[in-house]
Design a protein around this nucleic acid. Structure first.
Length: 1150
RNA sequence: AGUCCCGUAGCUCAGCUGGUUAGAGCGCUACACUGAUAAUGUAGAGGUCCCCAGUUCAAAUCUGGGCGGGACUACCA
């Protein structure tokens, strides 16, 4: 082992990244960081599984830097941190890329390619970029346990998911229902939103639209509407799909929209009527010019129709009013024909009242369910509910309906004409666009009944099926649901216990989402995913859900015995054995599970429900499935307090996961365990390019994380990302910012270390001396130690509160401003030359302590350099027993070392120094030229005491000999007074302005009266005002006749007269500086001794001889001689003053 | 369309519960320092605190309404 601190020529963070990684691997540091915490309380982190079928991007570094920071922090706080890596492996993107790379479609599975091959291809595809992900994880220093990651396609993972589904099933939270989805009657298939968004699917078509009149039922709920009404009263609603009107069961209004009641005549029949519609849309339906027409003059058939607005109502008021069914073909079962509210209603077109047909619109279905409105359904011969339009796109035929239902609910006389008709002509091969559509016929029917206000053709954009080019219908399709609405209150209550960062995402985005919760649609008609473990008989009366392979296995055996299957496809599997070898024998994916036909308790065949489940369920199940719970690791879920793996203490992902992973985790944990899944959460914002645009490969503005890490190392990248903006704000990623962090923070820290190492090596300091008690150290040491402890407190609190930005910024501020720019700069002289005495040792100990503490504080954020710094320091001193900073304990602040008074004093010193340097600059006085004195006005004793304490620091920093304190009595200080708004404002309120004006008028005498008696009375607006010194701020701003600088309460004057003696000292310092430069240029060692010759010159002869000893000691010269003339070419010319050059010869001695 | 975030110097961001000269870093310009030196310091210029209205003695800060950028969700009679 070397006996010196390592010194560096330059800071290469990229190389350090590699070196430190290597040592982590050699020392197995990551595993040690867990094993050394064995038996301690756990800190549980859940890794949101990424999908490895895409390359990792720079935004992944962001999220993972956050995750890693807190896991490292908690490790240093002594917790045993659980963080298991995982992979999200299911879903449509995988299927699509497999099909693309193999050049096949789903139909080819089983023919062109075997199921086994397809399955294998999916497994390969989904792990395509595993290597890159692992590499990024490693290089960026993200410590997550990759030894045994959870993989969502793994049979054991699926088994846990099945177990969860079974729990939901048993609790009655899993049911089969329907949602409104795009459906192509021509192709006979449902369409995904993905398919609908393909180019060309949305097309402008011309359809018959109708504004229909819904007749209000007069009762106690609607009575208020009848004031002044003498004709039938209607709600007006517009539709572009009149064929949905027979399925209407509600009308929807916007709660905050204003509606008007208008008296007029029906344009088609001329019958008097009163209608209700949105005020904003009045003139779209009634010509403003007609408002002056006389009702008496109107005859049926007139083009110009008079109208009159009778009253206004808000949507809220209209809610609950009942109306008559518009088209009485089929009676719905349940509550219907009522006005409800919906937040999606606008007054952009139509009437501001939306016709609701729950079976044919997603919004319709949603608001109807929320308001308890029944959909309009018919019952078929099998006793199943069906919408009024069947899957081929025609009105449900009467003969296919249940007879009893027809008798009780169907008006066959009026419906017969429409029964079996296609709702779009495109579906009927015998029809063309020229034939009358159902829409037209329904509109004509309404016209005749005075129920149509306006029927017209209208061009609008409508989705079409990409396979058949025919229009799509929104249609209720079977789906399996999780009844999340049943636990809505619990979800909300538990959410309120979660610490969200930022809070707004939790109470706002997530909270609102929970408030408007609908049941979770689990079904996906896909191939590569977790199959629903549900088998049903064909008539749907018998259902079985399986929560383990063992249960399914047993049922298969029964089915084989019953002769439904020839053999058990999972033959050889041993229930209860959890090794890879056993689970490799089976595959729970499609289509293997589809081939399983089971036997129901009544002996009928049971077939699997063909759907897969939402991949979000997979990832939301990870708290359980990652450990194959409850089949294995059960004990970890019922632990003594603080020792388990559930729930998570912390998770972090992008804010885009709010309704994805965050929700599914929360929902599943709530339903299964009545518990939160996570206690603390950071949802981070996006990483944009430096112009604020979204990064995309297409635009070429995506930043490659590997290149960035290679170039700068991970630390500057992580630090930049964590400190540039709060994690939850979007980050405008600018490479220049990473470089700035490298220079400003890491560069300065490195410089500070190198400075330390340089002199510590010269003096042989290796912290073997007794620790000098802090109270025995000089002011500046105590000051920096005080700040250091304040910093420890702040960083600790910030990380405790999941605020990495505050932590990083505080560390950076400390290193740059306080440690480097003040402590080291002021203490430099203490390190070089001189005795190895207590002061010097104190200087080393203090700086060492600061450096090693900064290493520990920054370790969670910048794991690489901090570890190098820590080990470089510790290798020699052996002060710490831990091999790595990541195994060390996080520092705790020693409150007794925090000295706010001292911090204030040093603040004065810093400000005073900078002011004096400013004055010197103004007068073009070099700092090397000593000056005689500064003068400081003293307003109170405390200030004088503080200034005196740092007097020496200021004087040496600005090269001035003494301080003169000016007290009031001298009468040369001019004072300035300013009211203290914070104390006066609440007391005097309205007359504040006048008080401020009066105070501004105070004379010097007034001010001194106030100071002496601590009271001053004035009258403002006939009100007596008494001021005390606490109500004002008194400062000095001028010392007449002197060069003065003033900042806040601090005022300093500088004496710029230079005596002969000062002049000579200045010359001496000038020589020292020049000689030092020569030493350095000649590459002398810091410790080399020299001999010195200076050619005589009357300008400086006296100065050199007077300050001979001073010059010699500073430059380590053994002899200094003034010579008459230098031999030719010897020595070099240096400038001592303007136009004065000296020839100096420097020679290394011995 | 709804929900949420953001809008402060040319750029990236601070600015806590309202209190009177609105800050920092980068960049630019000038100067200084010099045994930390491919470093460092100091200063200058640079602001409609997105706009409008309100509350208040007092608003960058609180309230309401816009505008602009972004995300998510839903897609519309």
């Amino acid at each position: 082992m070397s006996d010196k601190f390592r010194e560096y020529k330059q800071l290469d963070l990229s190389q350090i990244n590699k070196d430190v990684l290597k040592s982590w691997e050699e020392e197995d540091t990551f595993h040690k960081s867990i094993s050394t915490r064995e038996g301690n309380p756990t800190f549980v982190f859940y890794e949101g599984p990424p999908s490895a079928n895409g390359m990792p991007g720079i935004h992944h570094v962001m999220a993972r830097a956050i995750k890693d920071t807190f896991c490292r922090y908690k490790t240093m706080k002594g917790f045993r941190v659980h963080r298991k890596a995982g992979w999200d492996t299911h879903g449509l993107p995988v299927e699509l890329s497999v099909e693309k790379s193999l050049g096949i479609t789903k139909e080819d599975i089983g023919s062109k390619i075997t199921v086994e091959e397809y399955n294998a291809a999916c497994r390969r595809e989904v792990m395509k970029y595993t290597k890159e992900w692992e590499q990024l994880t490693r290089q960026m220093g993200y410590w997550v346990n990759m030894d045994n990651p959870y993989i969502t396609y793994d049979n054991r993972y699926i088994e846990s998911v099945w177990w969860l589904l079974k729990q939901l099933f048993d609790k009655g939270l899993l049911y089969k229902g329907y949602t409104i989805q795009p459906y192509s009657p021509a192709a006979g298939t449902g369409l995904s939103s993905h398919e609908l968004n393909q180019p060309g699917c949305y097309r402008d078509v011309k359809d018959t639209t109708a504004v229909a009149q819904f007749s209000v039922i007069r009762d106690e709920k609607s009575e208020f509407l009848y004031d002044g009404v003498d004709s039938p009263l209607y709600f007006m609603a517009w539709t572009t799909t009149p064929w949905t009107l027979p399925s209407n069961t509600a009308l929807c209004v916007g709660p905050k929209i204003t509606y008007v009641k208008v008296k007029s005549f029906n344009p088609y029949t001329g019958e008097p009527m009163t209608v209700i519609l949105a005020r904003d849309l009045l003139y779209s339906h009634f010509d403003p010019k007609n408002t002056e027409l006389d009702f008496e003059d109107y005859k049926a058939g007139d083009k110009k129709i008079p109208y009159e607005v009778l009253a206004e109502y808000t949507g809220e008021e209209l809610t609950g009013v009942n109306y008559e069914q518009l088209i009485g073909w089929v009676k719905p079962d349940g509550d219907a024909f009522r006005v409800i509210t919906g937040d999606f209603v606008t007054t952009e077109d139509g009437t501001g009242i939306v016709h609701i047909a729950p079976t044919f619109g997603a919004d319709d279905d949603r608001v109807a369910k929320q308001s308890g409105i029944a959909p309009l359904l018919v019952i078929d011969k099998d006793g199943k509910n069906q919408p009024l339009v069947d899957k081929t796109g025609r009105f449900f035929q009467i003969e296919k309906m249940d007879d009893a239902f027809v008798a009780s609910n169907v008006n066959t006389a009026s419906y017969a004409e429409f029964s079996g008709r296609f709702v779009k002509n495109a579906y009927d091969e015998g029809l063309t666009d020229d034939d009358n559509t159902v829409d037209v016929d329904i509109s004509v029917m309404l016209k005749k009944e005075s129920k149509a206000f306006k029927v017209e053709k209208h061009v609008h954009s409508y989705p079409h099926c990409w396979r058949t080019d025919k229009p799509v219908l929104y249609y209720p399709l079977d789906s399996w649901f999780v009844r999340t609405t049943a636990v809505k209150d619990k979800l909300i209550a538990l959410n309120n216990t979660i610490n969200w960062k930022p809070q707004s995402t939790g109470v706002g985005r997530f909270g609102n989402w929970l408030e408007n919760l609908v049941d979770w649609n689990l079904s996906r008609s896909r191939f590569w995913g977790t199959p629903l473990p549900i088998w049903r008989t064909e008539d749907g009366t018998q259902t079985k859900c399986f929560g383990s392979v063992e249960d399914l296995y047993g049922e298969i055996e029964k089915a084989v015995a019953a002769g439904f299957m020839t053999k058990n496809p999972y033959e050889g599997f041993v229930p209860g054995e959890f090794e890879d070898s056993n689970y490799d024998k089976i595959d729970l994916h499609r289509p293997y599970v589809d081939d399983i036909v089971l036997v129901a308790d009544n002996g009928e065949k049971m077939f699997r429900e063909p759907d897969l489940i939402d991949v979000w369920f997979d990832s939301g199940a990870m708290p359980y499935a990652q450990n194959h719970y409850p089949f294995e690791n059960k004990a970890k879920y019922q632990p003594e307090k603080g020792r388990g793996v559930f729930p998570a203490d912390f998770i972090a992902e992008g804010v885009d996961q709010t309704r994805g992973w965050f929700f599914t985790l929360h929902a599943i944990a709530t339903m299964i365990d009545d518990s939160v899944a996570f206690r603390n959460i950071i949802s981070n914002g996006l990483v944009l390019d430096k112009n604020g645009n979204k990064m995309s490969k297409r635009l070429g503005n995506a930043v490659d994380p590997f290149e960035t890490i290679e170039k700068y190392g991970s630390d500057p990248l992580r630090w930049y990302m964590l400190t540039n903006s709060q994690p939850w704000d979007n980050l405008k990623f600018d490479e220049g910012g990473v470089d700035e962090v490298r220079r400003k923070f890491f560069g300065t820290l490195y410089n500070t270390y190198n400075f330390f190492a340089l002199y510590a090596n010269v003096d042989g300091f290796c912290y073997k001396e007794e620790e000098i008690p802090v109270e025995g150290r000089p002011e500046i040491d105590r000051w920096v130690i005080s700040l250091l402890n304040s910093l420890i407190k702040e960083v600790g609190e910030s990380l405790e509160n999941y605020e990495p930005t505050r932590a990083g910024r505080a560390i950076s501020e400390f290193v740059n401003e306080n440690l480097s720019n003040w402590f080291v700069r002021l203490s430099r002289k203490r390190y070089w030359g001189g005795e190895y005495d207590a002061d010097k040792i104190s200087a080393y100990q203090t700086l060492y302590t600061c450096l090693v503490t900064v290493a520990k504080l920054s370790a969670p954020l910048a794991p690489f350099y901090s570890d190098l710094l820590f080990t470089d320091l510790n290798k020699l001193t052996g002060k710490e027993t831990d091999q790595s900073v990541h195994l060390a304990e996080f520092p705790t602040a020693d409150e007794s070392l925090i000295d706010k008074d001292l911090e204030q004093k040093m603040d004065i010193a810093q400000r005073a120094s900078s002011m004096i340097l400013g004055l010197r600059r103004k007068e073009k006085l070099k700092v090397r030229q000593p000056l005689a004195k500064i003068m400081v006005p003293v307003l109170n004793g405390r200030f004088k005491e503080q200034f005196e304490a740092v007097e020496g620091i200021i004087l040496s920093e600005v090269n001035v000999k003494e301080v003169e304190y000016l007290t009031d009595t001298a009468g040369i200080i001019k004072k300035k007074i300013k009211p203290n708004f914070k104390t006066l404002g609440p007391k005097y309120g309205k007359i504040m302005k006048q008080i401020a004006a009066s105070v501004a008028q105070f004379s010097q005498a007034d001010i001194s009266t106030l100071e002496k008696s601590d009271s001053f009375k004035l009258t403002v607006n006939d009100q007596e005002v008494e001021l005390t010194t606490a109500d004002v701020e008194i400062t000095t701003e001028d010392i007449p006749g002197w060069l003065v600088s003033s900042e806040g309460e601090l005022t300093i004057a500088l004496d710029i007269n230079i005596s002969e003696e000062l002049k000579q000292e200045g010359i001496a310092r000038e020589f020292i500086n020049k000689i030092q430069n020569i030493r350095k240029d000649s590459n002398f060692e810091v410790t080399d001794r020299i001999s010195l010759k200076i050619e005589k010159n009357d300008f400086y002869n006296q100065a050199v001889s007077n300050y001979k000893d001073y010059i010699s000691s500073q430059t380590l010269s053994a002899d200094l001689t003034l010579v008459d003339s230098m031999e030719n070419g010897m020595g070099q010319l240096v400038e001592i003053d303007q136009n004065v050059e000296a020839r100096v010869f420097v020679e290394k001695k011995g």
